[in-house]
Amino acid sequence: NQESVVAAVLIPINTALTVGMMTTRVVSPTGAPAEDIPRLISMQVNQVVPMGTTLMPDMVKGYAP
């Protein structure tokens, strides 16, 4: 099972992602793949992402898996 990126903390809208904001988990439906964490760092979210929420590609500005 592939791990997806999950918010480790509450991420406010327009916040640039840091490694400490993200964790990985096997979830369904799958979100952004765990191996993309290095690409996701410094990208901004376009909505509030509550802690424990799977990071879906459409939540991150300019990100395409």
Rank of each mutant, 00 (worst) to 15 (best):
P50G: 06
S4W: 08
S4I: 07
Q44W: 09
M43D: 02
M21H: 08
P12V: 09
P33H: 05
P12G: 08
I13R: 13
Q44F: 12
T18Y: 08
N1F: 13
A34E: 03
L10K: 08
P33G: 03
Q47D: 02
E3S: 12
T53Y: 12
I13S: 11
M22F: 04
V48M: 15
V6S: 01
L17Y: 07
V9I: 11
T54Y: 06
A64Y: 15
S42I: 08
I41C: 06
Q2F: 14
K61I: 15
V19C: 14
E35P: 04
Q2E: 11
T23P: 07
M59I: 02
G52I: 06
R39N: 07
L40D: 01
P29L: 05
I13Q: 13
Y63M: 05
M22Q: 07
V5D: 00
P12I: 09
D36S: 03
S4N: 03
D58K: 12
P33W: 06
S4D: 02
V27K: 00
L10E: 12
L10T: 15
E3M: 14
V5G: 00
M21G: 06
A7M: 07
P65K: 09
D58Q: 13
V27D: 06
P57R: 06
P29V: 05
E35H: 15
P33K: 06
P50M: 10
T18R: 10
T54N: 00
G52S: 03
A8F: 09
S28K: 12
T15N: 04
R25H: 08
E3C: 12
T30P: 15
A64W: 14
D58R: 12
V19H: 12
I41N: 01
Q2Y: 13
P33L: 09
A16G: 08
M21N: 07
R25V: 08
T18C: 09
E3R: 14
V26D: 07
T54E: 04
S42Y: 08
S42Q: 08
I11D: 01
V5W: 07
R39I: 13
G62S: 04
N46P: 01
G31A: 03
S4F: 07
G52C: 08
A64I: 15
R25M: 11
L40A: 02
R25Y: 08
L55G: 03
N46M: 09
A16L: 12
V60F: 06
V6F: 04
D58M: 10
A16P: 13
K61D: 14
N1C: 15
G31W: 04
V45H: 02
L10V: 07
P50W: 09
R25D: 09
Q44E: 14
P65I: 13
Q44S: 10
P57L: 08
L17E: 03
A8N: 06
N14S: 06
P57G: 05
V19T: 11
V49L: 06
T54A: 02
Y63K: 01
V26M: 14
M59C: 06
V6N: 01
T54K: 00
T53N: 08
V5I: 14
N1W: 13
I37V: 08
V49Y: 03
T30R: 15
M56E: 03
Q2S: 12
E3G: 11
V6T: 02
P12K: 10
N46W: 09
P38C: 13
V60H: 03
T23W: 10
S42T: 11
T24F: 09
I37E: 04
Q47A: 06
V6P: 01
V49I: 14
A64M: 13
D58C: 14
M22A: 07
M59A: 06
V26S: 10
D36F: 04
V49R: 01
V9K: 06
M51Q: 13
L17S: 03
L17P: 01
P29H: 03
V45Q: 03
T15Q: 03
I41S: 05
M56K: 05
V48R: 13
L10I: 07
Y63A: 03
L10S: 11
M22D: 07
T30V: 15
E35D: 11
M59P: 02
T24Q: 08
A64D: 11
T54D: 01
D36A: 03
Q44T: 14
V9H: 03
P65H: 10
L55N: 03
V26K: 12
L17K: 00
P65S: 12
N46L: 10
T24V: 11
V27G: 00
T15V: 09
V60G: 04
N14V: 06
T15P: 02
S28R: 10
A8C: 09
M51L: 11
Q2D: 10
A7T: 05
A8W: 08
A34G: 09
P50N: 08
M59L: 08
D58E: 14
V27I: 02
V60S: 00
N46S: 09
V49G: 02
T15F: 09
D58H: 15
G62D: 11
E35A: 15
G52F: 08
L40F: 01
L40T: 00
K61G: 05
M22W: 05
Q44G: 02
N46H: 06
M43N: 04
T15E: 04
N1E: 13
S42M: 10
V19G: 09
Q47F: 09
G52V: 04
V6K: 02
G52Y: 06
I13E: 13
V5K: 00
N14T: 08
A34W: 06
G62Y: 06
S28G: 02
P57F: 08
P50K: 10
V26R: 14
L40E: 03
Q2C: 12
M43F: 06
G20P: 08
I37R: 00
Q47R: 12
P57K: 01
I41H: 00
T24N: 07
S4G: 00
M21S: 06
V60M: 04
K61R: 14
P50D: 08
V60W: 07
T53C: 13
G31N: 05
R25S: 10
D58N: 14
N14Y: 12
V9E: 09
G20W: 14
K61S: 11
P65C: 11
E35S: 15
D36G: 01
T15W: 08
I41V: 14
L10F: 13
T18G: 04
P29M: 08
I11F: 03
G62F: 07
A7L: 07
P38H: 12
M51P: 10
S28L: 12
I37L: 11
M51C: 13
V5S: 00
M22I: 09
V49M: 01
V19W: 15
A34F: 04
V27C: 08
P29F: 06
V27E: 06
M56R: 07
G20V: 11
I37K: 00
T24K: 12
I37T: 02
E3P: 12
S4T: 04
I13W: 07
T23Y: 10
L40K: 00
P33T: 03
T54C: 07
M51K: 14
A16D: 05
V60N: 01
P33E: 03
N1Q: 14
E35F: 14
D36M: 08
M56Y: 06
P33Q: 03
D58Y: 15
Y63N: 03
A32H: 03
E35N: 12
Q44H: 12
P50Q: 10
I13K: 15
R39P: 03
G62T: 04
V49K: 01
T15L: 06
R39C: 12
A64V: 15
I37G: 03
T23D: 10
R39Q: 10
V60Q: 01
N14C: 10
P33R: 07
V9S: 03
V45M: 05
T23Q: 08
A8G: 04
P12C: 09
N14W: 15
M43T: 02
R25E: 09
P12D: 10
R39K: 12
M21I: 06
V60T: 03
T53F: 11
G52M: 06
V6W: 06
L55C: 04
G62C: 10
G31H: 05
P38R: 08
T54V: 07
K61E: 12
V45A: 01
G31C: 03
P33Y: 06
T30A: 15
S42A: 11
V9G: 00
G52A: 02
M59R: 01
L55T: 02
E3N: 07
L55Y: 04
M43Y: 03
L55S: 02
R39T: 10
I13L: 10
V5N: 02
A32P: 02
M43K: 14
A7Q: 01
T18Q: 11
T54H: 04
S42P: 01
M56L: 10
V27S: 03
T53G: 08
T24P: 08
S28M: 13
G62R: 00
I37D: 04
I11Q: 00
G52N: 07
N1M: 14
E35Y: 15
T18W: 09
P65W: 09
P50Y: 10
R25F: 09
P57V: 09
M43V: 04
R39H: 10
V9D: 02
T15D: 02
T53W: 12
Q47E: 05
T15I: 07
I37N: 02
G20E: 15
M21K: 00
N14I: 09
P38E: 09
T53I: 08
A32I: 15
N46Y: 08
S42E: 05
P57Q: 04
G62Q: 05
A32V: 15
E35C: 15
D36Y: 04
K61Y: 13
T24S: 13
P65N: 10
A8P: 00
V19F: 15
P12W: 09
T15R: 01
